[in-house]
């Protein structure tokens, strides 16, 4: 497996993908910071808080932005093997199709967690910069760690709810269909986020679970987790089945 992961890493060389990925992680932290600073100056007296910076970031990341960006990442990692025509050389080595796809899935999981951890670091840096000019409350190490854990858990749940898009990429051999699907799903996320049934919708449930807001919903935590796990396993199982019987035409 380490060979497959090493190869995935080498495939990123000279590519614009890491740079675009890094830039994309900046969008939510910058947006949330600008929003908080604007609010501070318009409603003077209301201090900026590290909690609200992270809380807002988690909402934008988990409900809207990260699913879309991660779907593009996932579709690129898997879809490029079809568009570059490399599968015929890989399968004739031979590399087991199951191991190959597991390598891709694991690499995608690493990218998802890296995305969330970089976002965490960027929010922290942005709060640090703001703190030089305006007071930022709750700017303490326990809060840094508290949100580091939340972002990490968020990354795991995001990855779990993304696996059906791996199947869609394999099925359609491109990123257009998965992208359209994730845009639709993210829009439903926005509509459902305050609804009592949001806990049953895996993509909203991930956010509610991480932020502890699920307790305000009618859906028990165990049910939400089971739905996310089912979606994850279903995504992986269907991807494996499809990839194993794939013919290189």
């Amino acid at each position: 497996m380490h060979r497959l992961l090493q190869c995935e890493y080498i495939k990123l060389k000279h590519s614009k993908f890491p740079l675009i990925g890094m830039l994309s992680t900046l969008i939510v932290p910058i947006f949330v910071t600008v929003k908080a600073v604007t609010k501070y100056f318009s409603d003077s007296g209301i201090a900026m808080s590290l909690f609200s910076l992270y809380d807002d970031s988690l909402m934008f990341l988990m409900l809207l932005f990260a699913p879309m960006i991660l779907t593009i990442f996932g579709a690129w990692i898997i879809g490029r093997e079809y568009t570059d025509g490399t599968l015929k050389s890989i399968f004739t080595i031979p590399v087991s199709r199951t191991s190959f796809l597991w390598g891709k899935i694991l690499f995608f999981a690493i990218l998802t967690l890296t995305f969330m951890l970089i976002s965490w670091l960027e929010i922290l840096m942005s709060a640090f910069l703001c703190n030089c000019f305006i007071p930022v409350t709750e700017f303490t190490i326990p809060y840094f760690i508290f949100f580091l854990i939340k972002m990490f858990l968020g990354g795991i749940l995001l990855f779990a709810s993304q696996t059906p898009f791996i199947y869609l990429t394999i099925r359609t051999k491109g990123f257009v269909t998965p992208l359209i699907a994730i845009v639709a799903i993210s829009l439903i996320n926005v509509v459902l986020s305050n609804s009592p049934i949001a806990g049953f919708y895996p993509w909203s449930a991930s956010y509610l679970l991480v932020t502890g807001r699920l307790s305000r919903q009618s859906c028990p935590k165990e049910i939400s987790l089971s739905i996310i796990l089912t979606i994850c396993l279903l995504g992986i199982a269907t991807s494996m089945l499809r990839f194993k019987k794939e013919e290189v035409k």
Binding site: I10, K11, S89, T92, I93
Partner: peptide, 17 residues
């Protein structure tokens, strides 16, 4: 297959490498 070498149609490689 490890004892076989092959080219099928246009060779597929990673364009950025």
């Amino acid at each position: 297959l490890p004892r076989v070498g092959s080219i099928i149609e246009a060779p597929g490689f990673y364009p950025n490498l």
